[in-house]
Write a protein that binds this DNA or RNA. Sequence first.
DNA 1: TAAACGATCTGCT
DNA 2: GCAGATCGTTTAT
Length: 203
Amino acid sequence: MLMPENSQPDLRNRLTRRFFSASATTVAKRLLGKSLVRLTDSGQWIGGKIVETEAYLSKDDPASHSHRGQTRRNLSMFSDPGTLYVYSIHAKYCMNVTTERCGIGSAVLIRAIEPLWGIDHMQKNRQQIELGRLTRGPAMLCQAIGVAIQHDRTDLITSAWLAILRGKPIKEAEIMATQRIGISRAVDLNLRFVLRGNRFASR
DNA sequence: TAAACGATCTGCT
DNA sequence: GCAGATCGTTTAT
């Protein structure tokens, strides 16, 4: 399951702007199985495989931060596709990637990864040894890979330290759609996507 | 400027 | 499984 400690993510497999230029729902599904990687200050790539995402739409989605239009907080959600949107909630941070096109305001919340690279580094970041509680939730994930509010607006296509890479293709049957977690509006939309049976997804 | 509210997590049962 | 911590942003006064 887990990759050998010494294997490195291959930056040649980086996703393009085109990948993120689809609807949030499509991108949310397609991000499953991709690798989220971050270069630390000490020159080490850390991260893992995306196993859980949620789509937040621009229209007809009252749960989306963009629903009431642009504010200071959600500005980056309206940027070019492939831009990082980091927001704070409950004194923690969560990360999204914008989708579709500039000015739309749709994005995908990355909720959980399967730890693969730099596990020891992520454990230190979180003061958490247990793998099952290392990156299992959007705020845990951000803390583990050291993403915070100052990284809002980072371009995932060109950034030297943060990237998403292609992985083994995922079959539709491996994807499970459920209600999104922790929201009070538009609860009936099935916009949360999980790699079926993966132990690193939340819940 | 005050009050309320989260796209949450942790620690303790 | 549940109560409580925690703090930036939004909304009300």
